[in-house]
């Protein structure tokens, strides 16, 4: 079974870390990542830019409503996510509209990725 681990933390705290503090946390995480990679358990992992860099496409509206900032509603739950290679925000928004046509309702929060660790192939085991 593949599991997705969704990382939550207080943004104003994490983005107040000094470079040294940030590096220290990343180094400690890397030790765990290496161990997981050796065991063939490490799939892709990513770190996102802050929510101030986010744009939300509310696709319950037609045409979809584009809102600056993160997804802030509590009625809907996180059901999945994509990682897509987009030229810029415009392209990301047009892809979101296309996906939204195929699956209306809910919203996409579009967040630029700060760090992408591709990881290895996972899911071969039972």
């Amino acid at each position: 079974m593949l599991y997705a681990f969704l990382c939550y933390h207080a943004e104003d705290v994490v983005f107040s870390w000094s470079q040294e503090e940030d590096d220290a946390v990343m180094a400690k995480l890397d030790v765990v990542h290496q161990k997981l990679a050796k065991a063939g358990k490490m799939g892709p992992a990513l770190r996102l830019l802050p929510t101030t860099a986010a744009t939300t496409v509310r696709k319950s509206e037609d045409p979809p409503l584009i809102i600056d900032g993160p997804f802030a509603e509590t009625k809907e739950q996180l059901l999945g996510f994509y990682v897509l290679d987009c030229e810029d925000l415009d392209e990301a928004l047009s892809i979101a509209r296309e996906l939204g046509k195929a699956n209306p309702g809910g919203a996409y929060e579009i967040r630029p990725v700060r760090l992408f660790l591709p990881g290895g192939a996972v899911g071969g085991s039972e």
Binding site: L49, P50, T52, D88, L89, D90, P112, R114
Partner: peptide
């Protein structure tokens, strides 16, 4: 690169 990425993302948002 992190700060540049964040800055460029914000410019993209503002341009809209």
């Amino acid at each position: 690169r992190d700060m540049i990425a964040e800055g460029l993302a914000l410019i993209d948002k503002a341009a809209r």
